[in-house]
Each structure stands twice: as C-alpha cells, then as structure tokens.
Design a protein around this nucleic acid. Structure first.
Length: 710
DNA sequence: ATTCTGCATGCTGAT
DNA sequence: TCAGCATGCAGAATA
C-alpha cells in the first residue's frame, strides 16, 4: 500500500509501516488499516504530504486563529481541513463545510479497531462546522463520525495520559450537540444520535440538537449496561411478567416502545436493555434508542416513543397503548457474582454452567445455546480484575461464516434485540465493544431483511476475531460491565472434536458442555489464555492438567496454537493444520467448517488427527481416585457408581497374571516400552518410565524393557 | 481478479 | 409448521 500516515496519531509511526486493505466506504472512499496499530488510514482525509512539524499550519479562514495548537489532534485537523475538513478546533468554525470525506472515514469504521493507542484519533468534527448546505443525511452521517471520534477523544482515564485536555474541553462542548450511537458507550453526557434533530442556530449554522431537551441538556448515553444506578436492572422479575403500563409510568417514554417491532411483536421488559432503566433517571435517554435517520424522517414517531419509525408507523397505536404482560425468562438469575455464589452452593464452583441471562426478552427468550457459560471463578476473577460487576449476556459459537474473512458475525436475533440497541435502518449503528485485552472495537451493528424478519449481524469483526485468534467453533461471549454498561466481548477456544461436532450437546451434569475449553470467556487475555483446554468439563476446575494432557494426547488442541503449540509435545495438531498454508480448495472447504455437525466438513488431515473415537475415549476414563464406589445391581449386573465424575488417565491394558492378580500395562511415552504396573495405579495421561516408581529397575528407559525381557 | 455487499435459499431446531 | 440462521450467490465495487 505504500507508506502513509497512520490515522492513529498515537501509533507513533509515520510513513513507514504497511497498510492492509481496510473497509470500503459507502460513499466511495476507501480506508486502509495500519498493520501496526490497526487504525485506519483514509486517503481522502489524510495524505502523504502530511508531516508533523512542517510549516504551513493554517489559520482558520473565519476566525483567523491558528488551527494548529500544537496538539496531535489539531495537527490532524489541519489535514482534515486540507482535504475538505471540518473546522477550526479553536473556534469551531469551519472554513470548509465539506464533511463528506470524514463521513466516509467513519462509515468505513466497520471494523476499525479503536485501540488503546488510537483513543484520540485525529479526525475531529465539530458541530459548528456544518454549513447550511449540509443536508440532514450528511449530518446524521456525521453524527456517526462524531460518535466514533468521541470515543477517541473523550477522556478515558484508564488509558494513555496524553495531554489533550484542551481538545477535550472543546470536545465537551461539541459532545453536547452530538449523538452517541451504539451501545457500551460510557455513561457520559451525550444524547443519543437518535435524539438528534437539526435546527438552525442563531448564526445560521446547522446545529444538532437534542430534540426533547434541547441541546444544552445532557442526557445519559445509551449503554448496554445497567449501571449501578439502575438496580432493578439486575434484579429478576419475581413474577416473570412485566406490565408495560407500569413502565409507562416512568418519566421516560422509552419503556413504552423501544422495540423494533413493538407494534407486531412487543417484547417489553423492564431492564432488558439498560437504556430503559436509564431512562428512569434521564428522560432524554429514550432518545437514544431511535435511529437518528429514521427519527429525522418521522419525527412524530419519536414522541410516541422509541419505536422504530418504520415499524411504528405500521402500528403506532398499539405501541402507545402499551402492552399487556409479557412473559420473560423464568426467574432470571441475578447476574454477576451474586449468581455465582448461588452456584457455589451447589458444590461446583467452577463448573461452566449455562446461565440464563439476567435479562432477556420475553418473546425472544434466549435459547439455552446462547446462555453465557462462565464459571463462577471466571466471573469473580473478571469482576475483581475490572473492579466491576460483570453481567454475562450471551455467547455464540462461531460459525464458519462468522469466523471467515467476510467479517460478519451473525448475532442471534433474540440476543441482538435484547442487548443491542434497536435499529430501524438496515445500515444499523456503529457500536463499540471492548475485548478482554481492553481494546475497543467499533463494529457496525445492522440487520438484513430476512423472510419477513431480520437477521442481525456485526460487521467488521474480522480484526477482532483475528486478534483473538478465533476460528469456527470457538465461542464468543458478550458480557456487560457494570457500572458503565460497556460491552465486553470475550471468547473461549473450542476443542476441535466435540465442540465442533455438537457444541450444544451437554453430556455432563449441570449443563456444562463438553469440548468447552478452560479458557475463561472473558477473563483471560487471549494471548495468555489458559492454554490447553480440557476436552471435557469437570468440576475440578478449569486447568486440570489431566485434561490438558489428554487434550494433547488426543491431538486436540484449542486455538491457542500460536502460543502453546510447541509447549508440550510438538505434535502437529489439527489447529496446526488449519494454520499452515492451505490450498485454495482447502481454504474453501475450511470455510465450511462450522459448529453444526451436519454441516461440518473437515479436512481429511483433520479427520486423521481425530484419532480417538468415543469408544477409545472411554478407555481413558478412570474412576476418580480415592472415591469409593457404591455398588448397584441392575438386572443381575453389578455396577460401580461414583459420586464424582471420571478422570482421565493413561491408556493401559489390564491383564490377569498367573497368580490371578490383576496387572496393568502401560506404555512409556518416551521409549514406547510397555511396563507392568499395579492394577490400581492411575496414570496421568502422559507417563514415562522414569515415573515408574513401582519398578525402580525399570524406571530408566535405557534399560531393557520388561516387555523385551518377556 | 478479487473483495464487498445485500439478499436468497434451505437446513435445523423449536414450538 | 415456522422462525432462526448459516451460507451461497449474484451484482457492485475496488485494486
């Protein structure tokens, strides 16, 4: 791509690093992504001519103040001006009203990573910069720009300490006029984009105003979360029913109709989207849940509630009348640690339990397959790490399509409608999601019409997916951080064999799923994830070395191959196979590998790697040590019954010696010699002669093996 | 030629 | 039977 200036001014790299193809822009532009930091380069905004420190900083053509204040943001702003930019950061006046290029940039942010380093990207848009000639559509698009930039420019104390305070101050002035789109945005004082309307300011410039409360009135931005200020959000509804009329008593009308399809499929639930709760404390919050464009087209619908313009126009009355009681999840569990403690009472503190999400939507009750499975330990750890309450929302096993290059992650409809902001336009909204490493990603949350319904997708997930090194069959989890309501995207690596074959099948008690890894869903840094997952879930914790070793033994690895593949045995794994260069046909086939068993296609090599059948795997099961079985007799057959689940041991053979004594034979993993062992010995999955403490004469594999002696 | 985008198709599981 | 969703596919856009 040649050398460009990275849009991320904190990237620290100019004109040196490579660019990869980024996101095509709806209006014709094209953004490139910086290989180094992941930020976007937009050639319409930034040019190769830009060199910090060069002469030529302009004065604002209106106020004559120098545009360049010395900060990194204004440096970039200068370039924005040069290429049809947006205004002087000093006076918020525009010398050039063109905004389309910047619009393009942000539209192209479908998958732009807003990393810690790119928090204060340089594209600056100021509300005062819009001229009269800018139509609403552009302005609305610009809202997106601002929203995206806001995230970069707002103070974020947990991040870098670059001094942009003066810029921020200006930004704060702007922010009051601009919209906040998406979810997971911090609960600052921005009105939602949906609340934006356009009017002429006294100086003739188009202003963006909060429709309901005027521009000066800040409101809560929409977040996914249920901040601590909204306690009811995290509490289950004892009756399981919510009367919308009750909700309508709240100051906000948001509860009355935030649903996309309220007219036809009302699914109100108090607290299902934090916004509803927030609306109790800020009436303007309701504004946030209407698509701005839609709203601008159908302003009346806005006042009627937050129904999507399209849908509402179909059935406006039904919405206003409120809805009768709607069933919701059967006694949703209280999210977060509280729920964990309850689970602990069951005696399986670390079992990965599918948790019914704390909030859900009645009609669109989430299928158990999407219930977040996170262990209490993980939850507590994560909560502790982030000093926040983590509310698991849902999870999804990545399909081949999700993990493919297309960069579209299909969201379960119910989840999308329950936890993501309502969207009326197919284009959707950009939303910001944080990953477990703290990086923030901007995705486009949108939908496609599909069979009189909708199909929700997150677009632009490829960089994030790649960052997490996820593949089809892995699981992404969506959680919410309270307070703040930020959305966190975690993941779990999948064991190849079972998770991919049937990730929804639960063969273990308490709903845990086989094949799930020990990698906490949102806890661990993917780069340092717990590594080898267990093939099976046990209640002994997530890092059972036996399971790790078994995973090796089976040649089944998780997705941490890039970091761990050489840690143990050096076996070539199916992951390795997937990682190595493959032919086009293989690539094509690989794309078809998905979690659905009936759609599963595997590389023949992969099949070979999966050498063990279930029957063979059974051979590895051993009774839990130090647990006495109880004998039950069923149809004259005696069965040993254990209270504890089996553990995995090394594959061995049992024989009876001449003295009728049971013996066990196991093969050394180093020398491959067979050793005779006591029958009651439980070997770890990986065992060598050196560990043959029962026959010290044959604990050195340099000696002749017992088998040879025989 | 390749990638992107939007939609259509058909499978699957829930009801 | 139907809704959801994985994925195929064709046209558009881009390199």
């Amino acid at each position: 791509m040649g050398s460009k200036i990275c849009m991320n001014v904190l990237c620290g790299t100019t004109n040196t690093h490579e660019w990869k193809k980024g996101w095509s822009l709806r209006s014709g532009g094209f953004a490139h992504l910086c290989f180094k930091c992941g930020a976007a380069y937009e050639k319409l905004v930034y040019c190769d001519k830009f060199h910090a420190g060069e002469s030529g900083w302009r004065d604002c053509s209106l106020c004559r103040k120098p545009l360049h204040c010395g900060c990194i943001v204004s440096k970039s702003l200068y370039e924005c001006l040069d290429y049809g930019g947006v205004g002087c950061i000093s006076c918020a006046k525009s010398s050039q009203p063109r905004v389309i290029q910047n619009d393009d940039v942000l539209n192209g942010f479908g998958g732009l990573k807003i990393s810690n380093y790119s928090d204060r990207q340089s594209t600056v848009v100021q509300n005062g910069a819009f001229s009269n000639t800018v139509d609403e559509g552009k302005l609305l698009q610009l809202c997106k720009i601002m929203e995206a930039n806001e995230s970069n420019l707002l103070p974020q104390p947990q991040r870098g300490d670059i001094n942009v305070s003066h810029v921020q101050k200006k930004q704060e002035e702007v922010i009051n006029h601009k919209g906040e789109v998406g979810l997971g945005f911090s609960s600052t004082t921005q009105p939602s984009i949906g609340s934006l309307t356009f009017s002429k300011s006294d100086n003739g410039r188009t202003m963006i105003e909060d429709m309901n409360k005027s521009s000066s009135q800040p409101s809560l931005s929409m977040t996914l979360g249920s901040p601590s200020a909204t306690p009811s959000f995290v509490q289950p509804f004892p009756g399981g029913l919510v009367d919308v009329r009750e909700q309508s008593k709240t100051p906000s009308s948001f509860q009355q109709g935030h649903g996309r399809e309220q007219g036809t499929t009302p699914s109100f639930q108090q607290g299902l989207v934090d916004g509803r709760e927030q609306s109790k404390t800020s009436s303007s919050f309701q504004q946030g849940l209407v698509d701005g464009r839609e709203q601008s087209k159908t302003p009346s619908s806005f006042q009627q509630g937050l129904v999507d313009g399209r849908e509402q126009s179909k059935t406006p009355s039904s919405f206003q009348q409120g809805q009768k009681s709607r069933p919701i999840l059967p006694k949703p569990l209280k999210p977060g640690v509280t729920m964990s403690s309850e689970t602990n009472k069951g005696g399986f503190p670390n079992v990965r339990v599918a948790r019914p999400p704390a909030e859900g939507r009645g009609k669109n009750q989430l299928l158990p397959r999407y219930w977040p499975r996170i262990t209490d330990q993980e939850l507590q750890k994560l909560s502790g790490d982030l000093n926040s309450t983590i509310v698991p929302l849902f999870e999804k096993v990545l399909s081949a399509s999700d993990a493919g290059r297309i960069g579209r992650l299909v969201l379960p409809k119910a989840c999308a409608e329950a936890y993501f902001p309502p969207i009326s336009q197919s284009e959707g909204l950009p939303i910001k999601i944080q990953d477990v490493k703290g990086n923030e990603w901007m995705f486009q949350f949108r939908f496609w019409p599909n069979n009189n319904s909708r199909m929700y997708v997150l677009e632009g997930v490829t960089p994030c997916i790649q960052s997490m090194q996820l593949q089809a069959g892995d699981t992404v989890t969506f959680s919410r951080i309270d307070p703040g309501g930020r959305l966190v995207m975690g993941f779990r690596k999948a064991s190849k064999s079972l998770d991919m074959q049937d990730p929804q099948t639960s063969i273990l008690p308490n709903g845990s799923t086989p094949g799930e890894t020990s990698c906490p869903s949102v806890v661990e840094n993917p780069a340092t994830g717990s590594g080898h997952p267990g093939l099976f879930q046990t209640n002994t914790g997530s890092k059972d070395p036996h399971l790790h070793a078994l995973s090796e033994h089976l040649h089944l690895t998780d997705g941490d191959m890039s970091l761990h593949r050489n840690d143990y045995h050096g076996h070539r794994t199916s992951e390795d196979l997937l990682q190595q260069p493959v032919s086009n046909s293989d690539k094509k086939r690989a794309r078809n590998i998905g979690p659905k068993s009936k759609r599963l296609l595997m590389h023949s090599e992969d099949v070979l790697e999966l050498r063990l059948t279930w029957e063979e795997a059974q051979d590895l099961l051993r009774p839990p040590p130090s647990v006495k079985p109880s004998i039950v007799t069923i149809e004259d057959h005696e069965f040993e019954e254990y209270d504890e689940p089996p553990v995995f041991g090394k594959r061995s053979l049992f024989t009876a010696s001449s003295s009728e004594r049971q013996e066990q034979w196991a093969q050394c993993d180093d020398c491959s010699k067979w050793r005779r062992l006591p029958a009651d010995v439980l070997l770890p999955p990986k065992w060598t002669c050196s560990e043959n403490s029962w026959d010290t004469s044959r604990c050195n594999f340099f000696l002749l093996s017992y088998v040879h002696e025989m």
